[in-house]
Design a protein around this nucleic acid. Structure first.
Length: 943
RNA sequence: GGGCGGAUAGCUCAGAUGGGAGAGCGCAGCCCUUACAAGGCUGAGGUCACAGGUUCGAAACCUGUUCCGCCCA
């Protein structure tokens, strides 16, 4: 129990305090932006985590930095809004629910599309968004009343709106191309969703016999022999002398005995393999390009499941890897396998399930990206969007330069359904009824008149009496050729706008999740409605995110923002680091090196954890996270707590809330105010330039090493006496502490609020109080200089004590001889402080002091300290100490001397630098003389 | 193959626009001094990866080398 009637726990314990305060803030609606129109807006949209996700270190860092910014700006008087939300994560979420269903012994097809979607929503309501609760644990001050989800009604509207607009403008189109296909997820992927991984594979050399003379061969090298069944040519470089006479000749494709030509294409690398490459247009991107140039046919030998097709002859139905083995064995038997070599190459994997990607030819939806990209590059070049750190713009430009059209359709059920319909009754240019071209495959047959129906064309199925609904419910695959007439519609249409027929079916695909994420900065603010929020908060101020989604997300948001808002989505893009483990390895479940942020919070408190992340968040470098650091910053929290405990002993003596430099008498008080002023400026400056570590460091340094180590200790001298400065010291102590707590609040919101509200009993919450800015206090140069003397005197005594191993319990007689009038005046003014903090028994300050024999000495700029230690210590040890100091001084003298003798230096260096060095040089000369003198005295002592 | 980033104390890292290096942890010594041992005080520890160059002056700027990491093809 303390004097003012509050009991304070011995050490700071975050458990219990945090949730209480968080609930308090939320109940008071402090997370909502201030509606006052006078206040300037400040807005951040959270990078929406996956709804399936749980909080990992990356999220924690990301959220901490955003929260620091938001709390800082809110306290600076902005109407601050941080919009939270999650994205629907098409593949990931669908996978989660499919696994659940599989555990029940079913698959999604058995449920049917609409039932399956119901299950996904159910799952989302009960388990999804766990991460939102976790964000609250780290103290995120998001406006939860504005929580959004990419599949919610408003955002779905935005998605449709955007799709239709782009479709109408011809920026969205449907095309038959080779795409990246995941045989496990059964969907197309965009280029970005493929991860290339260096893999140790093999290079197979296969002999293709010549038609005209089967004893002659061309040997091709390939890493994927199973695709040879789909070869439609062999290509060589036209410059390649080895093959000059082969060009135009016909080869017999082994195993399948198809005739294929030898063609010349300059894209062929003569150095690779034998210089002759097989061309498989259906299963390789490079080959597809060659095929286009030479008008080669496509032969598709691998299907959407990764199994061999009918075209694969006797390998039909085999898995692609099984087929590879068999083909190699068969070739070997035929004597057509020349050799195999080890070979390293990059293999594409699905970023969600890590399955090896199969290039696959299908009809997909694309966004024509060039026109959008041009605008997005321009706004960055013009500086309307800044990247911080700057270096990332190069990556951004590079990617934008070689950008390819964006494949946006996914063969999933969970996501925004593409708002396009196809008419079965309209006729193609060739006069064929479209329904005859739409092929349906059921997951489970329909039995009709004792016959199992597995599918067929749309028209066939309708003719035998299967309803439209049945077809859509039961379809596993709906193949709709490219040329079929289609129309987009915002509302669900009932008939074809061209022929009026009701036989229309919707495109079965959904949109890439990133399509909806790209709209996030304006869709979350209410677009396409012209809401108040949109008017007030768009463009947002900053996007805080990791570099890994610059392309996936940041670039696309800029494109969409420019396209639909005619304005950038954010001013700044702050790219933060990746959080790695202590050894610098990426954290991953399989490596087992994952650190759970919630465990850290549980163990050390959210404040210590947040502070660690901020202190680590130096620009341009990854974070190697170590638990030791968190522990260190928990100590910091505890330090604050204890300082507060000390102060609360004097709480009742406080007479005013604010103090100014002018009204203060005592230089220590003026000093700490000046130091606070510096810290305030440094912190704000650092935050303005997103230097979170500098801001955290400035506060830490001030609070611990200036406020606690020096100021509190100095204050005790006054507070435990009957000094007339006691009142102003108490007032100053609290004033400085309160402002420091304010500075710290964005970093450590809980402990600061707890002290503010529940210990200091402030009327209003700290999180809505005002952030200190540099005009709050100025600095007093004189006080700073005075403290310099006092600190030197105290440290001088302590050094002697420490280095000579004199027990702190031994009170010493200290003599200080000032060598200037100023030194005498200042040191005398600080007499009591020196006496107490140096733990002196007696202290004499006088220019008339004569050094006693057997004194330890410390030489300062313009005073000397003598401590008689004859009885206490070993003379040799003191001599050693002085020699060390002398040596240090002399090396520096030598260095400075050389510098000052250099005419070029005097001539070229700035005046201040030369002046400073001269001064330093002279001081050191005096110092070394003094030390030498004192060494002589020690010699005398020996006698 | 193209591009980017890193190498500073035993460990993890800071070191805007060049003026001879800092922190935290760890380590050593002395201390339970009435806010705090989750603490105090005092120390030890660094040819700033290597080699050249620019400059009066380089950890910083330029060139090359080695090692490590990332992105793209």
């Amino acid at each position: 129990m303390y004097k003012h009637g509050i009991s304070i726990t011995e050490t700071y314990s975050p458990q219990g305090i945090e949730s209480k305060l968080y609930n308090f803030w939320e109940e008071k609606s402090f997370f909502k932006p201030d509606p006052d129109p006078q206040k300037p807006p400040y807005c951040i949209v959270i990078p929406p985590p996956n709804v399936t996700g749980s909080l990992h270190m990356g999220h924690a860092l990301n959220a901490t930095l955003q929260d620091i910014l938001i709390r800082w700006k809110r306290m600076l008087g902005y109407s601050a809004l941080w919009i939270p939300g999650t994205d629907h994560a098409g593949i990931a979420t669908q996978n989660v629910v499919e696994r659940q269903i599989m555990a029940e012994g079913h698959n999604r097809y058995q449920l049917g599309r609409s039932n399956f979607l119901q299950r996904v929503w159910q799952w989302k309501e009960s388990c999804g968004g766990k991460i939102i609760e976790q964000l609250k644990r780290i103290g995120a001050s998001c406006d939860w009343s504005r929580l959004r989800f990419t599949m919610d009604e408003g955002l779905s509207r935005a998605v449709k709106e955007v799709f239709l607009k782009l479709f109408e403008e011809g920026l969205i189109y449907r095309d038959l191309k080779l795409i990246n296909w995941c045989p496990r997820c059964h969907t197309a992927l965009s280029d970005l969703e493929v991860e290339h991984e260096e893999t140790e594979g093999k290079l197979y050399y296969i002999k293709y016999p010549l038609k005209e003379d089967s004893t002659q061969f061309i040997t091709v090298a390939t890493t994927r022999p199973e695709t040879m069944l789909g070869d439609t040519a062999v290509a060589v470089n036209p410059e390649d002398k080895r093959y000059k006479n082969m060009i135009g000749k016909i080869l017999i494709l082994p195993l399948i005995n198809r005739e294929i030509p030898v063609i010349a294409d300059s894209a062929v690398d003569m150095e690779f393999g034998t210089g002759a490459v097989k061309v498989t247009p259906s299963h390789d991107f490079n080959d597809a390009e060659i095929a286009q140039r030479h008008n080669l046919p496509n032969v598709c030998v691998i299907d959407e499941e990764g199994k061999m097709t009918d075209e694969a002859g006797k390998y039909r139905g085999m898995d692609r890897y099984e087929a590879r083995k068999r083909i190699i064995a068969d070739l070997e038997e035929l004597g057509l396998l020349e050799k195999t070599e080890k070979h390293k190459h990059a293999v594409g994997h699905c970023y969600r399930c890590k399955t090896v990607i199969e290039p696959f030819q299908t009809v997909q939806w694309y966004v024509k990206i060039k026109p959008l990209a041009e605008e997005a590059v321009k706004v960055v070049q013009e500086g309307r969007i800044r990247f911080i750190p700057e270096g990332w713009v190069n990556n951004y430009y590079a990617w934008m330069r070689d950008i390819k059209d964006w494949c946006i359709s996914r063969q999933l059920w969970w996501g925004h359904r593409i708002p396009v319909w196809y008419c079965a009754k309209c006729k193609t240019e060739k006069g064929i009824e479209q329904g005859d071209l739409i092929e349906i495959l059921f997951y489970k047959p329909i039995t009709l008149n004792g016959k199992e129906i597995w599918g067929g064309t749309y028209n066939e199925l309708r003719k035998i009496g299967i309803t439209k609904e049945e077809i859509e419910q039961r379809a596993k695959i709906i193949k709709i050729p490219k040329e079929i007439f289609h129309f987009a519609s915002y509302y669900e249409p009932t008939s074809c706008p061209k022929c009026g027929n009701e036989e229309i079916i919707q495109d079965p695909d959904v949109l890439d999740t990133w399509f909806s994420s790209a709209l996030w900065p304006f869709s979350t603010l209410g677009w396409p409605e012209e809401t108040e929020d949109l008017k007030r908060f768009y463009p947002t101020n900053v996007l805080v995110t990791g570099f890994d989604i610059i392309f996936f997300w940041v670039a696309r948001m800029i494109m969409m923002g420019m396209k639909f808002m005619k304005e950038v989505p954010f001013r700044d893009v702050y790219i933060h680091a990746l959080v790695r483990d202590a050894k610098g390895q990426k954290m991953s479940k399989s490596k087992g090196n994952v650190i759970d942020p919630l465990v850290m919070i549980e163990k050390y408190g959210a404040d210590a954890f947040r502070f660690t992340l901020a202190a680590f968040a130096a620009q341009g470098r990854d974070i190697k996270f170590s638990e030791d650091r968190v522990e260190g910053y928990r100590h910091f929290a505890n330090k604050i707590w204890n300082a507060m405990k000390f102060m609360m002993n004097f709480y009742n003596l406080r007479t005013k809330g604010e103090v100014t430099l002018e009204e203060l008498n005592l230089f220590t008080n003026k000093w700490i105010l000046s130091k606070l002023s510096d810290t305030i400026e440094e912190t704000n400056k650092a935050l303005e330039s997103y230097r979170f570590n500098d801001a955290a460091g400035a506060i830490y340094q001030f609070l611990w090493h200036e406020f606690c180590d020096w100021y509190i200790e100095l204050s005790k001298v006054i507070l435990y006496s009957e000094s007339e400065d006691k009142e102003e010291t108490v007032n100053c102590l609290f004033y400085v502490f309160e402002n420091t707590i304010k500075l710290l609040h964005p970093f450590m919101p809980y402990i600061t609020e707890e002290i503010w509200l529940n210990i200091l009993k402030k009327e209003h919450s700290l999180m809505i109080s005002s952030y200190p800015t540099k005009d709050l206090i100025s600095r007093d140069e004189e006080a700073l200089e005075k403290m310099e003397y006092i600190m030197q005197a105290i440290s001088g005594v302590r050094s002697i004590r420490g280095e000579l191993n004199i027990s702190p319990s031994l009170n010493l007689e200290v003599f200080i001889k000032p060598l200037s009038i100023n030194a005498e005046k200042v040191l005398s003014e600080g007499y009591t402080f020196i006496l107490k903090l140096a733990k002196a028994k007696t202290l004499k300050i006088s220019k008339d002091i004569v050094r006693q024999k057997g004194s330890a000495v410390s030489v300062k700029r313009d005073f000397e300290i003598y401590i008689p230690v004859k009885e206490m210590i070993d003379i040799q040890q003191e001599k050693k100490r002085l020699l060390k100091e002398l040596q240090r001084a002399e090396t520096e003298i030598k260095f400075l001397n050389k510098k000052l003798m250099n005419e070029d230096f005097i001539k070229n260096a700035p005046k201040e630098v030369v002046e400073r060095d001269k001064e330093k040089y002279e001081e050191l000369l005096i110092k070394s003389d003094k030390i030498k003198e004192n060494l002589k005295v020690l010699e005398e002592l020996k006698d």
